[in-house]
Design a protein around this nucleic acid. Structure first.
Lengths: 363, 363
DNA sequence: TTGTATGCGTTATCAG
DNA sequence: CTGATAACGCATACAA
């Protein structure tokens, strides 16, 4: 029942000094101003009394809470927990606390969470929910908040962001399929309101053109969310007409949706249709079949974002920068050479060498 | 640059009333004490000025923050995001904010997070990291904190908890395999320091006895964490000697580890060895093969825990209660009748009827 | 019904 | 180097 609330006054009293002095001792930045001997004594007493600083009282005075808000679009997407871990790792080390909020793709909820976090006086934000035109994010930045975008960014620049090279990633996926001999390659595009959705789509188109392959309109399906269900629906459309032999999905959940649609249509992956995902999220290697995917550094992306945020918080005049991280292809068992179509001549040894992992399940 | 900090004083001034009155208006509990007309006016002004209450200032005064700490052992385990979602759903509705902290199974980190949260004056905790003897949890409860345990509980009772019926769940898994004709059934036990680890183990043993099956010592392997890696290692031991035809894993990640060990040993699942998981976590149905697992209501367990916590916060004298939720078996393609062993006589039509999902991938 | 005064625990400014 | 004092934004007992 005793919520031990030892205050600076208590420490001061038993140490025989003034509360102000205790404050100075306990604050690293002002500790130098005080006599080493008394400082020592104060710390001793504080320890004995089990004193711990009350951050909300401090925050009231300093307008800094050493906490940052983290906005996640969908906690159920396995991509995000590792990103959060990366964020927390560097934040913790710097004495900050991450306040994680999942918006479940709901703009109203997002705005509400943002306001709650602002009310709680967070010192900044790491935002993974950005859309290309995002009023709430733009407002927050315009209002002077320290904001770093992660995974997705907004258009117009002038913002701190850590993102994968989406175009290159999509190009890698196309290149891999082309090299395997595919020519009818489809794309399940993510929501075009996000940079990940748009840039992966553009990367797909460009890579197809570079490979001399046609991008037929009906071989691009639009998913309205980065979810399995949306991927399934989009893939169904793709499978209705003249069938592709390969599918590049804008992320792994969409790829999983494609798996479902394929099974539903009685098609096998990769025997009938190859599928490539994006993100290489946890468990991608455990699906049936293990998913070939464009890998991005999960915890790394989060850690870098947090580092940028700390810089921005320390120095509000810091120059905005976008960090673009290099993706790489993880080839697994969801991709293979097309069965019936004539093989195109291989491009030679360059590009992704499709070495199969030797530890896959015996199938 | 303008972190618009409109305070009650500002509202009071432009509304021509005293700050105290503004406070009364803006607080639902005291709003009745003020003249409806002035109240109206004050609210109007507050809205126009974009006033928002400063929860940390309020918290300093009231010692309530309307926030609760949520301790998660491993955010990367897909079981937890839905639980968190359930927690947040009811907390949000009640005007509370969830502060989620992942401890990554590190006791030091757990203690640190707990202290941080206490320092931030959370009104209570939902804890998913409990071990059977858990000093930090016990201390927190003894200190009078509102605490609800979720998924795992501690020994000794006197605590609020929402957990699955672990024994029954394990018994269902055993019953399913026995009914399929398995008699050499092994168990990958979770950490015995947790109730989920211990009770699922006990449930396994009891169900084996009930089925008239022998529990050989070397058919129980101990995993030292609820992770894929630990499951893999434990399963390797199981596969070394006289092989089981079925494995009951204490959770789905351990089951995935078993998949790996089986593949490594050149064994197929379920043709050579059947595997049953526990939790029916998201994606369990997408693995190779789709995992038969004991289902528990994920968001439900979280929601109920949050509800109990709110009750406990409102009424510190509330009677501790443990809510035990009924599991159910989800039969998928990781279980089948044993190939070579003599089939035991079927128990009849009762029990889990192994109806295969007809939408599985065509394999 | 509303104004006044005080304090929550801390930090910052100003003396000494 | 340290003490005194005010203030951060809000809530509440008390007075009017």
């Amino acid at each position: 029942m005793t919520q031990t609330q030892v205050t600076m006054r208590d420490v001061a009293r038993t140490a025989g000094v003034h509360p102000g002095t205790v404050s100075r001792v306990l604050n690293p930045r002002t500790r130098a101003l005080v006599n080493p001997a008394t400082a020592e004594r104060v710390e001793q007493v504080a320890r004995e009394l089990g004193y711990s600083l009350n951050p909300i009282a401090r925050g009231l005075k300093t307008r800094r809470t050493f906490s940052v808000g983290v906005l996640i679009p969908d906690l159920q997407n396995p991509l995000f927990p590792p990103i959060i871990r990366g964020i927390e790792r560097v934040l913790d080390a710097a004495g900050y606390t991450a306040l994680v909020a999942s918006t479940d793709g709901d703009p109203a909820r997002e705005r509400q969470r943002l306001e709650t976090l602002i009310a709680r006086q967070v010192d900044g934000f790491v935002i993974a929910t950005a859309e290309r035109r995002h009023p709430v994010v733009a407002d927050a930045i315009a209002s002077g908040f320290a904001v770093v975008l992660v995974n997705r960014t907004i258009e117009g620049g002038g913002v701190f962001a850590v993102v994968p090279d989406d175009r290159r990633g999509a190009a890698m996926a196309v290149g891999h399929l082309a090299e395997l001999g595919h020519s009818r390659i489809a794309h399940i595009a993510g929501p075009q309101a996000t940079t990940t959705g748009l840039l992966r789509y553009r990367g797909f188109v460009e890579a197809m053109e570079d490979a001399g392959l046609a991008v037929e309109g009906r071989l691009v399906a639009q998913a309205d969310a980065f979810t399995i269900a949306a991927g399934e629906q989009a893939a169904r459309g793709l499978l209705a007409g003249a069938r592709p032999t390969g599918i590049v999905a804008a992320n792994d959940l969409l790829a999983l949706g494609a798996y479902t649609a394929l099974a539903e249509a009685g098609l096998r992956c990769p025997a009938d249709v190859s599928v490539v995902g994006f993100n290489d999220m946890p468990f991608a290697d455990r699906f049936a079949p293990p998913l070939t995917s464009v890998h991005i550094p999960h915890t790394g992306i989060g850690a870098r974002a947090a580092e940028l945020l700390l810089e921005r918080i320390e120095d509000p005049a810091a120059t905005p920068q976008t960090l673009m991280l290099e993706p790489s292809l993880r080839v697994r068992q969801s991709t293979a050479a097309p069965a019936r179509a004539a093989r195109r001549p291989r491009a030679g040894g360059s590009g992704a060498t499709a070495s199969r992992g030797s530890r896959g399940a015996g199938r």
